[in-house]
Each structure stands twice: as C-alpha cells, then as structure tokens.
Simulated scan of single mutants.
Amino acid sequence: MILAITGGKGGVGKTTVALNLAHALDAVAVDADLGMADLPERRGPDLHDVLAGRAEPIEAVDETGAVDLLPCGRSLAGARAADPTGLVDAVREIERSYEDIVIDCPAGMSADAGLPLYAADRCLLVASSEAFALPDAVRTRALARVLDAGIERVVLNRVGASPPDERVRDALGVPVETIPDADVVARARRSGQPVGALAPDSTVAERFRRLASIVVSDGR
C-alpha cells in the first residue's frame, strides 16, 4: 500500500499526521516535499540523492529511528540536482521491499504535489477546522481525483472540543476523522519522534492507532 498524506495548504499539520500514521502502520515514511522537507533529518543518503542518481531507493531508507524513513535533503543544490520524475519509480521500488509506504506530500497544488498522488494507491487529506482552509482542501481533493488517488478520508487536525465534523464532511463528501490539539504533539515534534513512541498511552497516540486501523480496514 502506498498512502499519500496531502493538504490544501501548509500549516495544517500534514507532516505530523504522516509521521504518526507511518509509526502506527509500521510503514516507511517518505518525505516527498523536495523543496521544503519537514520530516526529521537522518544521516546518510536522502531522496535528493536518489532522484539525482547518487543512491538507490532502498539504500536511502533509514531504519535507526522509531519510524523507518526516507528523508529528503534540505539544500537548494540538492533540490536542483534531483529529477522529480523519478519519484514514482523510487517509491514503488521501496514498496516492493517494505510493503507499506506513507508519503508526506508537498502542500498545495504544485506539480510536485501531483507526483506523490500519482504514485499513491490511496490518499488522506489533512485539513484545518477553520473555514479558510476548506477551499484549499476542496481544490486538493479535485487534483487527487484527476490523478485517480481519490481522497478516502479527511483528517481534521488539532481540533478543539467541538470540531466541525459534519460541515467538513458535507463540504468534501468523504468521512472525517479528528486528531485533538495537545501539548504532547508539540513535544513529540520537537524531539523528532511520533507521539506513539513518546507517549503511547496518550489520547493522541490512541487516535492515530485508530486512524491506522481504519486505513487498514478501508483497504480490505
């Protein structure tokens, strides 16, 4: 399974959802944001190296952390040397060895965002519960449908006590799951760890495990 995590705009917590869901699914997390990498850095070759022909995809998967990770480089030179068109083949090669992949897509509607969606079998859309984020989410849903990676569910991230589940479901036409706002998420992000590794008994960790279970069930 190749699962893309996308978002209509930046700042909605898409990377946090991707890392935590990869941990809950025991999947490889792939940082496919070639120009603005956000998943934790690791030593060794990265996606820039893979797409520039300097490393094999399997060689660049780092297994030293709580989540197996194909990180992306952060240098401008690395981004310029990378050929984005090789992303689909690289991800599919990793899938053959690891089976489950979670791709952290670039935010928005750029061409770079379309490539991971094209590679994916399935897709989750991360959105903010604020009304201003919904138009961007609707546009990303349309792009995913064009690329045959239709949005299966929306993940409303950092929600409060009364999330607008029904309004978002009506606007986007797909089921909605919620991840609560909590200090433990910020602590986990600062440490470069998924919440499930830092605070496995927390409500947020339980929500990500539930979301992983739903993803598995949807795929059957």
Rank of each mutant, 00 (worst) to 15 (best):
D31K: 12
P45K: 02
A66F: 07
A24N: 09
P40R: 00
E63C: 09
D46Q: 13
A66E: 14
A32M: 00
R54V: 05
S75G: 10
A29G: 12
R43T: 15
A24E: 02
P40N: 07
C72G: 13
G44P: 09
D33S: 10
G65N: 10
A24I: 08
M36V: 11
L51G: 05
D49G: 10
G35M: 04
M36W: 04
L76S: 11
D62A: 11
A24P: 12
L76N: 05
A24V: 10
R42H: 14
A77H: 03
A66I: 06
S75V: 04
L34S: 08
R43Y: 13
A60H: 02
D26F: 07
V30D: 01
L76E: 12
V30Y: 00
V61M: 09
D33K: 13
L25F: 11
D49R: 00
R54L: 11
A52N: 06
E63H: 09
E41V: 15
L70T: 02
A66V: 08
A37T: 07
L76I: 10
G44D: 01
A37Y: 01
L69S: 08
G73Y: 00
D62Q: 09
T64I: 10
E56P: 05
L25I: 11
V67Y: 04
G73N: 04
S75Q: 07
A55L: 06
V28M: 04
A29S: 06
L21S: 03
V28W: 02
R74Y: 06
A52T: 08
A27F: 00
V61R: 01
A24C: 13
A32K: 01
D26T: 08
L47M: 14
D26L: 06
D49Y: 00
A32G: 12
P71F: 02
T64F: 09
P45E: 00
P40K: 03
L51V: 10
S75L: 05
A37K: 02
E59C: 15
A22L: 10
E56S: 15
A29D: 06
D26M: 05
D62W: 03
L69A: 07
C72D: 03
S75N: 07
R43S: 15
A27Q: 03
D49L: 09
G44Q: 13
T64A: 15
E63A: 12
G65S: 14
A29H: 02
A22G: 05
L25C: 09
D33W: 07
A32N: 10
S75T: 12
L34G: 13
D49S: 14
D38C: 13
A32D: 01
H48I: 07
H23W: 15
V67F: 06
C72L: 09
G35R: 03
D38S: 15
G65W: 04
